[in-house]
Amino acid sequence: MSHGQRIDKASIRISATQREVYEAFINPEAYESWLPPQDMTGQLLEFVPQPGGAFRMKLTYNDQGYAHAGKTTEEADIAKGYFRVLTPYELVVQAITFESDDQRFAGEMTMTWKIQPSDGGTIVSVECSDVPEGIGQEDHEMGLNCSLRNLELYCET
């Protein structure tokens, strides 16, 4: 399967308002805390939450057993991109590339986060299109679900 043909998805229902969820996307401390999947730590290197605004995040593996798993270095991934769309309380669209010399991770991936009202809460769904072929689908979807659970914990505390 070549780059651009795969779409990975995940969703969750959160007992928080759309406003609370959306604000977790545009607050740098919040974003840095919930986005990294399990077994990773995030560090924002740049973050301008506005349409066209850039972001850059270093995701470091906490477990040395993952050595040689990183895209950028043996123990880390650096993702950079920009916000294509920020529709308050409803939609966040990001264009993301990974800093890597490995062509399997090349290309721009689009992450579309929908924030929709649900009875007494909010449904957050993410769809990743143009996923680089070097990212395993099962691992990626597991990571997306982990990030969504982190978002849920962040918003509900």
Score class of each variant (00 low, 15 high):
Q18W: 12
R19M: 13
E20L: 13
E20M: 12
E20A: 15
E23A: 13
F25S: 05
I26L: 10
P28D: 06
E29A: 11
E29P: 01
E32M: 04
E32D: 00
S33K: 14
S33T: 14
S33G: 04
L35C: 07
P36N: 07
P36G: 05
P37Y: 02
Q38F: 09
D39I: 10
D39R: 13
D39W: 10
M40C: 09
T41I: 15
G42C: 03
L44V: 09
L44T: 09
L45Q: 07
L45T: 02
L45C: 01
E46C: 10
E46A: 12
F47K: 12
V48G: 00
V48H: 03
Q50N: 05
G52A: 01
G52Y: 00
G53S: 00
A54P: 02
F55S: 04
F55M: 09
F55R: 02
R56H: 00
M57S: 07
M57C: 06
K58Y: 09
L59G: 13
L59E: 12
D63G: 09
Q64W: 12
Q64E: 15
A67M: 11
H68V: 02
H68T: 11
A69M: 12
A69K: 04
G70E: 06
G70Q: 03
K71T: 15
T73S: 13
E74Y: 01
D77R: 05
G81M: 02
Y82T: 12
Y82G: 08
Y82A: 11
R84V: 13
R84E: 14
V85E: 15
V85P: 05
V85Y: 08
T87P: 03
T87Q: 15
Y89A: 10
Y89C: 06
Y89M: 12
L91H: 15
L91S: 10
V93Y: 01
V93N: 01
V93R: 01
Q94W: 08
Q94C: 10
T97D: 08
F98N: 11
E99G: 06
E99P: 09
S100C: 07
S100K: 09
S100H: 11
D101W: 01
D101E: 14
D101Q: 13
D102Q: 07
F105V: 04
